[in-house]
Write a protein that binds this DNA or RNA. Structure first.
Length: 417
DNA sequence: GACACGAGTGAGGAA
DNA sequence: TTCCTCACTCGTGT
């Protein structure tokens, strides 16, 4: 998505991020600090933060982790909604076409990298769709697709099709799904005394592929939300433009082999295009697998002495992003955590050895992850992790990128290096 | 073969 | 380091 305003990664912001660690900022200094160096092929020297800053980063990591008690409460509430919802979805006689859905949990909570509070949940409801064909939309770098039935089928739900009886319509699927969610909430909670109010959100992003269910307390304040995303599950091979590079396969090969080779299409349209009947590709399931099985060796994170700090690094990045967005909500409205995640995956691919991510090196590793993100901004190029030719920064305005680059370089000079 | 259920296991927070 | 809880996988029964 395009940035409509210049980004402001000012010194004050990062100061606030660091000062929230309850310590004063101590400048990074190449004179007083050593260098983080990698023993592997990806070796690039990164300036290492001094011990005080390292300590602050370690404390920050501890403070942003989810609390067990909150997780228990949230799991109670969320599963108390999701499980009956999915059962109802599968059994609803009026909408038999939802019978085959499977639950695919995605997003930061289920990737175990959610920070601060367990208040946002993402669940994809995958509809298997055999015998469909897809063609990519021009000028969208392999991110968006049109979906059609390969042959007419009486079993395929007609409410999901356009008048041509062949085009699978994201607008219709989402409309039907949202209607279903609203009806479920109305019927399931009718007459029951529940401490929370549930409603299908109307406030959020109009182009969201989800039916967002908000859970409100007695004062009508939102305490958590669930994004329910209907998705087409395509069992066919991935589109030509999508792939996992050889370096990724080598790195993940020892720990994990993505088991679910299918891919998903969700009802999200490209920004600035008139055609609404377009699907966006999603690899959330693979992203989750990478996040969970991130190690180069099979034993990574399985024992106390094989722990790594990869997940803590993305948690720190997310907390930095959240702090920035809190201070500049309008200017940073288009800055999304997916950029951090994508850049992080590229860093993991380059620094693939578990020895690069020792827990006591957390500060150094975080700087490395942040540095890599800055480099992507500098080059105005952040390739989608699964679609190498798709630049996620493509739609950003040049002047905004230039402005951002200047700020980041100033940032590096003043605070980090 | 599809589905539901439950035991076993891993991840991560708490003490 | 151990214990506990949640989420997930996989085997078993229907």
């Amino acid at each position: 998505p395009p940035f409509t305003e210049g980004l402001c990664f000012g010194k004050a912001l990062v100061l606030r991020f660091l000062s929230s660690l309850k310590c004063s900022l101590v400048e990074y200094s190449t004179a007083s600090a050593g260098k983080c160096e990698d023993s592997g092929a990806a070796a690039t020297a990164h300036t290492m933060p001094n011990p005080v800053t390292s300590h602050r980063i370690e404390e920050r990591v501890k403070s942003i982790r989810l609390k067990q008690k909150e997780i228990s409460n949230a799991a109670d509430i969320i599963n108390g909604f999701i499980d009956p919802f999915i059962s109802h979805l599968k059994e609803c006689p009026e909408r038999p076409y939802f019978k085959g859905v499977t639950k695919v949990t995605t997003g930061s909570y289920y990737e175990l990298v959610k920070i601060f509070h367990p208040n946002e949940f993402d669940v994809m409801l995958a509809l298997p769709v055999p015998n469909i064909g897809y063609t990519d939309v021009e000028d969208c770098d392999g991110l968006f697709y049109k979906v059609t039935l390969q042959r007419k089928s009486r079993s395929f739900p007609t409410p999901f099709l356009l008048e041509d009886e062949s085009t699978v319509s994201p607008v219709n699927v989402l409309k039907e799904f949202r209607k279903f969610v609203s009806q479920f909430i109305a019927s399931h909670y009718k007459g029951k005394q529940v401490p929370l109010t549930l409603l299908v959100s109307r406030k959020k992003d109009r182009n969201s592929p989800a039916a967002t269910v908000e859970l409100l307390d007695e004062k009508n304040s939102e305490i958590m939300s669930i994004d329910l995303v209907p998705a087409l599950e395509i069992l066919a091979p991935w589109p030509k433009s999508c792939k996992l590079g050889e370096d990724v396969k080598k790195w993940l090969g020892k720990k994990s082999k993505p088991r679910n080779k299918s891919f998903y299409l969700v009802a999200k349209q490209p920004p600035g295009k008139d055609d609404k009947e377009v699907w966006r590709i999603s690899f959330s399931h693979i992203e989750k697998e990478i996040m969970m099985d991130h190690g180069n060796t099979k034993t990574c994170c399985e024992f106390y002495d094989t722990k790594c700090c990869r997940k803590d690094c993305i948690r720190l990045m997310k907390s930095l992003f959240e702090d920035l967005k809190k201070d500049y909500p309008r200017q940073l409205s288009h800055l999304c955590s997916y950029y951090a995640k994508t850049s992080f995956f590229h860093t993991l691919t380059q620094w693939n050895e578990d020895s690069n991510w020792k827990p006591h090196d957390i500060a150094c590793c975080f700087i490395r992850v942040l540095d890599d993100f800055i480099r992507h901004v500098k080059n105005a190029n952040l390739p989608h992790f699964f679609i190498p030719d798709c630049n996620l920064f493509h739609s950003l305005l040049r002047k905004d990128l230039k402005f951002l680059l200047e700020l980041l370089e100033e940032q590096k000079k003043k605070d980090f290096f």
